[in-house]
Design a protein around this nucleic acid. Structure first.
Lengths: 225, 225
DNA sequence: TTTTATGAGATTGTATATAATCTGTCTGAA
DNA sequence: TTCAGACAGATTATATACAATCTCATAAAA
C-alpha cells in the first residue's frame, strides 16, 4: 500500500466508490481472494473493509457465503435523503432552542465562508465550510446521539454526492436557504427553521429524481447541497 | 467454541453484556491477546467482534492503539431513548398515512398477543409480540431506510433493557399506550399517534432516570417497554 | 425422470507468523 | 533539571497457513 493509513480504510473507500459509480453491480459477489489480489493486500484487511462497508449498508455479509454488493436503488436513495432531511430538521429544531452565542457566531462565520468560497469558485472550500455549518447544527442540537447519527448518515450519502458541479444554480439557492435557516433560528422559530432545513436537504433528493428518474441505473453521484 | 455460530458473533454479545453490566469499565482498554486467551479463540475473530461493537457504539477503535470500552453514561442513555422515541414517532406518523388493511390487522393481532402474554405472565411471549408490533410499525412507515435505522437503534438499546421484570406496573401502562396509539392511527390522526408513541418510548428513559438517577454507575439494564 | 448422495474444488472462517507501530524508559546534551 | 533521541518491550496491522463450510456437478437409486 502506498497509503500510510490502514489498508482497510483505503480499500473501503475504493470499493465504496466502485459501488457508487456502478463499477460493481448490485447483487454482485465480491470475492475475497480476487480483490485481495487486485489491491495487493492479504485477505485480512479486505475482510475488515467488508465489515465497514456492511455498516454503511453498501455490502451484505452472509456467513460462509461471502460479501454481496448492495447498491441503493433510486427509491432507496430518495429514502436516504428523506431520512437525512428529517434528522437535520430535528437537529435544527433542538439547536434553535439551545444555541449558545458562541455557536451562533460559528454558524454565521461558516455561512459567510460558504458564500466567499462560492463567489471565488472554490468548490473544495465551499464543501468544507458547508460541512462545518451542518456539523455545528448537529452539535448544537445538544443530543450527542443525534449528532453522531447525523454524521453517520451524512457519511453514508457521501459517495452519492458530487462535489464539483453546480447544476442549475443549485449552490446559489443553497446559499439563500442557509441564510433563511439561520434567520429563522435567530428569530427562535424552531418549526420554521426545521421546515426550511427539511426542504433544504430533501430538495437534493427531488432534484436528483427530477433529473434522473428516466435512467435505469442509479448514476454515480449527486450534486452537493 | 462450543457454539456453532461465527465466533465473532458470540464474542460480540459476550463483551456487549460485560460492558452493559459494568464488568468492563468505561474507558478500559480491551487487550486483544488477553481476551483471545479468555475466549479461547485467536485474535482474528476478536478483532471482528471489536469492529461490530464499534458499530454499536460500545467500543472505540483507535488505529494502532486498540479497542477502548465506551459505556454509555446516564445522559447518553437518555439521549439514545430520546432518539429512539423520535424515530418511532416518525414511523408511526408515516404508517398512519400509509397503513394497509392487512398491516392494520397484523398490528391488532400483535397488540392482542401482547395482552394475552401479559395476562398469562409469559414475559418471553410479551417480548416477542411487542417486537412484532413495533417492527410492523417500522415497516408500515414505507421508508425502508427509516425501518432499518429503527431496528438498528432498537438493537443498540437491547443490552440495556430487562426482559424479566415489570417495575411499577409499567407493562400494564404500556398495554394501554399501545391501544391508544393504534386507536389514533385508526382515526388517521397522525400527529396524535406520533405524539403518543414518542411518549411511550421516552417514558422508558424517564422511568429509568427516576429510579436510578441517584446511582453513580449506569446499571445493567432497563425494563422492557 | 426425479431425487438424493457424494465428493472435489472453491470459498470463507480461524489460527498463527511476521511486520509495523506505539509506549515508556533511559541516556546524554543543553 | 529538562528535553530530544534511541532502544526494548508490548501491541496492533497484515500476511500466510490451516480448518470448516459451501457449491455444484456427477452419479446412483427410486
Amino acid at each position: 500500500m502506498t497509503n500510510k493509513y490502514k489498508a482497510s480504510t483505503f480499500i473501503c473507500s475504493e470499493i465504496e466508490q466502485k459501488i457508487a459509480t456502478g463499477a460493481y453491480k448490485d447483487g454482485e459477489k465480491l470475492n475475497e481472494a480476487d480483490l485481495a489480489d487486485e489491491f495487493n493486500v492479504s485477505r485480512t484487511p479486505l475482510r475488515e473493509a467488508f465489515q465497514i462497508l456492511e455498516g454503511i449498508g453498501l455490502v451484505e455479509l452472509i456467513p460462509n457465503r461471502g460479501a454481496f454488493v448492495r447498491r441503493p436503488t433510486m427509491t432507496r436513495l430518495v429514502e436516504m435523503f428523506e431520512f437525512m432531511a428529517e434528522l437535520e430538521a430535528w437537529c435544527v429544531k433542538l439547536a434553535t432552542r439551545r444555541l449558545t452565542s458562541a455557536q451562533q457566531l460559528y454558524l454565521k462565520r461558516a455561512a459567510s465562508d460558504c458564500e466567499k468560497a462560492l463567489r471565488a469558485g472554490k468548490n473544495d472550500e465551499y464543501y468544507e465550510a458547508n460541512n462545518r455549518l451542518h456539523g455545528m447544527i448537529y452539535q448544537a442540537s445538544g443530543n450527542a446521539v443525534l449528532e453522531e447519527e447525523a454524521h453517520r448518515m451524512h457519511r453514508r450519502l457521501r459517495p452519492f454526492r458530487r462535489k464539483q458541479l453546480d447544476v442549475t444554480g443549485r449552490l446559489e439557492k443553497s446559499m439563500q436557504e442557509h441564510a433563511d435557516i439561520l434567520a429563522a433560528m435567530d428569530e427562535g422559530d424552531e418549526e420554521k427553521a426545521a421546515d426550511l432545513m427539511r426542504k433544504h436537504i430533501y430538495t437534493l433528493g427531488n432534484t436528483y429524481d427530477q433529473y434522473l428518474a428516466a435512467l435505469e441505473e442509479v448514476p454515480a453521484d449527486v450534486i452537493e447541497l
